[in-house]
Design a protein around this nucleic acid. Sequence first.
DNA 1: GTCCGAGTGGATGCCTGGTATCCGCTTTCT
DNA 2: AGAAAGCGGATACCAGGCATCCACTCGGAC
Lengths: 267, 267
Amino acid sequence: MDTVNPLLATVTILTMTALPRTSSDPGAGAPAANARADPGAGALAGKPLRKDAERNRRRILDAARELFAERGLGVTLNDVAHHAGVGVGTVYRRFPDKTVLIESLFEERLEEIAERLRTAVADPDPWHGIVTFLQRNFEAQASDQGLKELITAAPDGLARVARLRDQLLPLSAELMRRAKESGAIRKDVAPTDLAIVQLMIASVLDAARDVEPELWRRCLAIILRGLSARPDELGPLPVAPLSSDEVPRVMTLHKLGRPGQAAPPPR
Amino acid sequence: MDTVNPLLATVTILTMTALPRTSSDPGAGAPAANARADPGAGALAGKPLRKDAERNRRRILDAARELFAERGLGVTLNDVAHHAGVGVGTVYRRFPDKTVLIESLFEERLEEIAERLRTAVADPDPWHGIVTFLQRNFEAQASDQGLKELITAAPDGLARVARLRDQLLPLSAELMRRAKESGAIRKDVAPTDLAIVQLMIASVLDAARDVEPELWRRCLAIILRGLSARPDELGPLPVAPLSSDEVPRVMTLHKLGRPGQAAPPPR
DNA sequence: GTCCGAGTGGATGCCTGGTATCCGCTTTCT
DNA sequence: AGAAAGCGGATACCAGGCATCCACTCGGAC
């Protein structure tokens, strides 16, 4: 229970309390008829769904995509509802679990990554394959907070997503293997190190988001030099380094201390 | 308001809601006599403090140090109280602000870092200076979660701490300057890049904490290769890479879904 | 056009988890 | 012994998220 660090959660913190909502509600016939909601694409499977309902479903999905992208998986279903211009009830009826919503949104995204990985593996120049894969990948993550979280810190309970994500691993291992074979990367680098690179770059992405959103490219370049067997052929670091007054801004967690008014007359 | 990511907080969401507690209570004479509590060392300054009181003060400080170290700055003053074996009231009387507690604990720590930096700067071999500084530094952060948070994501509102931290910057800049001059690190690396290395390694530290706590050494080695002008002289990567089944464990956020019992009879 | 039920929305209740206070009791000190 | 300092923890308070419920609205089959 004591695990993790609630503060900052490092920022942050997982505010999304109940994902699974283990309703092991006993006895009683079958109170929950929802079970697995969101029948595929709405039109697909089950009953056709009324016109306005379908319209709202789309709105919700769109709003959710947008919000997840810009604020991460922490957004509440209430937020989504507002942003979609519908009532909370509507959202909860359509997607009883936040997981369902997340999964229906992100499977596609993950598939894109897999695709990128495959083309990278197919690249005749393995090093070039790796580099462009990483760049595309982080570009995607830079513009989609939710995606980033899903990759670097997937809340467990997202079975489908987790499964997909795990399929990426062997692929990236293959990518690394080829690159090592071709002599592009040093031989003591392991396939799983690629995952760690993910982590590290993602943290920069997070921290520098609203000071210098492109800083990750510079970090990636440094790390690539560290992996490469021929770092001197790599060209200069892209993106200007932070200025020294930007550093504290990147390393400080804003949003602390009460938002609004002074505490009501404490007396 | 919408900033940051509440989820994961990437660690952690900052659950510590009210740090400053801007009590701008107007008019009325002088209700808050506390102002700046914790008079230096308790014995120092002000009135002598009763024997038992002093004992408790120490207990609280010790408990806080321990808890902050192992769980981060998110621990509540209630936790601290329990762990110290005193009542909450006692803690709040002695340290009206969590900030006060934090500051009195960590100034020393930060001073240690500054000291390490200074010896690094003084090292005749600048590269060796940098490397050992980073290693010592991360060792300290590995065993002190709170310190790590303070460095990579200091909640603003900790004036004293922030000031101290900012003094580290010029020092590390000097360190880098010398290393560059000596030709040990590539010339396109900037002083501020060192701060970013902090960030990146800290994220690994966090994520891998309870899977492979030493993994950060490997990552640091990779990054050092990336910074070094002569990476080939650096020796092999330390610490075994993650095995592929460890990867998901590192990249998954545990602690999700309600802790305990199924929701009380929802009906 | 009518009518019924699918669909809606949002006020509301519940819960978690934190901060901070208050006040009857205990301890120290002289 | 008695006053003052200190103690502790039950208690109030608050924020903010999840999820429900139900009076209503509106689509569309007839």
